[in-house]
Design a protein around this nucleic acid. Structure first.
Length: 254
DNA sequence: ATGGCTTGAGTGTCAAGA
């Protein structure tokens, strides 16, 4: 089984790249973030032609998440309990007996911003939702764009980034809090190249200079982690014409 | 140095991303 996550920064713009990528990698499940379309505008027919069905939680212009899968997705959840927001950032589904929780965590803008407080609040709500889900699902994967780099080695210039949004201690503590519910960052379960990142700024040649951050993650419950054989960041699409600023992360299970 | 790209909205130029 192959499960992947990719912040595509507009499914309209990235559709040809996503279809190519599906044909190349044939994942069982691909979770998307920042689709930026309402559900009726999501190109479902294009994915159906490639053998994928789509579960959707979209909105106009901003946010929007989707789960593409070869087999049916059931028990869809689109809201975080205890959090009242119009922002479409979560989609959970059960696929082949695995609970898949796809998230697009708020960016936070800056540590001084109200949006930063909302980010922390969103993460608290996610943690309590996750505890609930883990009580009923042994095989669970929480994946997506977390907008948090866990450790200095996940940041190209950790001294400059320390304390800034995406790499501040409260955010990192919140990310550890999610893991403490019993999840494993499967990327770090395997040897990885130094300076492995999933996001590079469009400006100032960020990708060319490998000025990036590792902020997209695949966190897996222990029973499922036991079956994980591989986890990689696929940098290839980031080098294409008109790329998303994020790269896909791909986990393979026996 | 608050800029540097990209997208979506809407047809001006700005918000939002990270």
């Amino acid at each position: 089984m192959i499960i992947a996550t990719w912040n595509v920064n507009s499914i309209r713009v990235r559709l040809p790249q996503v279809l190519d990528w599906l044909a190349q990698h044939k994942p069982d499940i691909l979770c998307l973030q920042e689709t930026k379309v309402i559900d009726s505008d999501f190109p479902q027919a294009d994915f159906a032609a490639f053998g994928y069905q789509a579960a959707l939680n979209g909105q106009k212009t901003y946010n929007g998440v989707a789960i593409l899968s070869r087999t049916a997705a059931s028990a869809l959840q689109t809201e975080l309990p205890m959090l009242d927001t119009e922002q479409r950032r979560l989609l959970a589904a059960t696929i082949n007996g695995t609970r898949v929780v796809n998230v697009y965590v708020p960016n936070g803008e800056s540590v001084e911003s109200d949006k930063y407080q909302f980010k922390l609040k969103w993460l608290r709500a996610l943690r309590s939702y996750l505890a609930q889900e883990l009580a009923t699902h042994r095989q669970l994967v929480l994946l997506g764009d977390f907008n948090i780099a866990p450790e200095p080695r996940d940041v190209y210039d950790p001294k400059t980034w320390e304390g800034h949004v995406l790499f501040s201690e409260p955010e990192r503590a919140a990310l550890r809090g999610l893991a403490e519910t019993g999840l494993v960052d499967v990327f770090r379960a395997f040897p990885q190249p130094d300076a492995s990142y999933t996001w590079w700024d469009y400006r100032q040649g960020g990708f060319r200079r490998n000025h990036g951050l590792r902020i997209d993650h695949i966190l897996v419950s222990a029973p499922l982690a036991a079956y994980c054989r591989r986890c990689i960041i696929d940098k290839e699409p980031r080098g294409l014409e008109r790329p998303s600023d994020h790269a896909p992360v791909v986990a393979t299970f026996d």
